[in-house]
């Protein structure tokens, strides 16, 4: 179920609300619901449900989409702003490093999507703080890296390569393979970033 082909606030909110609604009122035969940036994946067992039945059920739920949605969970993430790209990032935005950090932390961000890698979260959208990705991909950044690009801040929970600007790190881990569930932060949650003390 797709709400757009570009990342917009409206499409992202619609995807998150629909996924939350499907979590709360599951459609029989649907085995997985995955909220993406602007779409929702419904994976169903064709031996248990037919596409036409699922489409019908979806239509019923879409009718109530406006005004639905849950109260977002709120998280505060302490960040050590000492990433290798921090100074360059601030400079590219014509700001001092301190001013960039202040602007970055000014307002809570919404979790736009999860699932790119275990525990990985995309948060956005920054008002006015927009910078393209780096031209060179870093082959590996550690878990807990705080990344910045395309008007978004992302937090890694595993080691991975990235083309985003590394602006800091956090001790917060959003992935515990033995946990139930294994990640805590979900799409639609609100994240306030603060300078780690």
């Amino acid at each position: 179920m797709r709400f757009g082909t570009t990342l917009t606030d409206v499409a992202n909110r619609a995807a998150i609300v629909l996924a939350a609604m499907l979590d709360n009122a599951p459609i029989p035969g649907v085995v997985e619901i995955m909220p993406n940036l602007v779409s929702v994946l419904l994976r169903y067992d064709p031996l248990l449900a037919s596409p036409s039945v699922i489409q019908g059920e979806l239509r019923l739920r879409l009718f109530g989409l406006a005004g639905a949605g849950r109260e977002p969970r709120r998280w505060t993430i302490p960040v050590v702003f000492d990433g290798p790209d921090l100074a360059e990032t601030a400079e590219a935005l014509c700001m001092s490093t301190e001013a960039f950090i202040t602007a970055h932390n000014a307002a809570p961000l919404r979790v736009l999507a999860t699932g790119f890698a275990p525990g990985f979260v995309y948060c956005g959208l920054h008002n006015g703080l927009i910078l393209p990705r780096r031209t060179v991909v870093r082959p590996s950044v550690p878990a807990g890296s705080v990344l910045f690009a395309a008007g978004q801040t992302a937090i890694t929970a595993t080691e991975m390569p990235t083309g985003w600007h590394v602006i800091g790190r956090t001790a917060f881990s959003n992935f515990d393979p033995a946990g139930h569930p294994p990640t805590l932060i979900g799409s639609g949650d609100l994240i306030a970033f603060e300078i780690a003390r």
């Binding site: 890698a117 275990p118 990985f120 992935f175």
Partner: peptide, 9 residues
């Protein structure tokens, strides 16, 4: 291990 896509798995 089904149903874990949203957790990145």
């Amino acid at each position: 291990r089904f149903g874990m896509l949203r957790h990145g798995i």
